[in-house]
Amino acid sequence: MTAPVRTRRPAGAPVLRPERKQGSTAADAALTLVGACFLLPLLWLVLGSLDPEAGHETRVPRTPGLDNFAAIMTPELLFQPLWNSLVLSAGTGAVTLAAAVLAAYPLSRYRSRFNTPFLYAVLFGTCLPVTAIMVPVYGLFVQLELLDSMPATIFFMATTTLPMAIWMTRNFMDSVPLSLEEAAWVDGASRMAALRTIVLPLMRQGLGVVFIFVFIQAWGNFFVPFVLLLSEARQPAAVSIYSFFGQHGAVAYGQLAAFSILYSLPVLALYVIVSKGAGSSFALSGAVRG
């Protein structure tokens, strides 16, 4: 088992950060400016949600209150779409994770000429622009009579995230030492039993990262359910927010902002969990690096 070897400075050696002293203040100012520019468009969301008379402009509410939140807290406006989002995202996460774990196991554990071409073919799949596939997918769903079907949409969304999930899962699985499994085989466990009882529990943090990664993508996905789910009762929050606020002439901007915030909160929370727990660069390196 080869642990990843990194060239590290021996402990105790002086850590020099070049230009730390002279560049600091200018860099601070520049970064503060950049951060402010990135926050500016979000300011409208926060202020607008608290302003019953909100329009396009950003302003401090004259009569701040939670009226907007109260107005959208109805079953058909908020709870049903959020429930649909949850079903769609959790379903996508579960299907993706199951297929990715099964696929990653042989790819991680056996040496074969099949592995590398397969992994690169899968990676190639991630490269195809999903938005370009939506028109043909719509046509395909019409012919197979799968349109407006929640399970079919879940399977399609799972497929679009599957390539990335297989790569990440395989990388996480590679870091579980083979020796632990071998001990289980000696005791008579089958390969699948060893996968379930030894490998998966050891990589549960990695599996959590993959699940959350897929969940966040599915939760935020607008275009796929927009094209594939037609009836209002099945539409997730991403689509209902668009059809409610985008197509009604007089737009209640305050309510739109309030809805956006409630709809974004779960994703923000999940992102914080991942980046606190495992480090976002860790998750990213699992995704980006081979």
Partner: peptide
């Protein structure tokens, strides 16, 4: 910087729409 990236795309799109609209930020 990350906040703009983590938000659901439809929310980011609405925020950008409001930001660039005629009497936007």
């Amino acid at each position: 910087v990350v906040a703009a990236w983590v938000l659901p795309e439809i929310v980011a799109a609405f925020a950008a729409y409001a930001y660039f609209s005629k009497d936007g930020t």
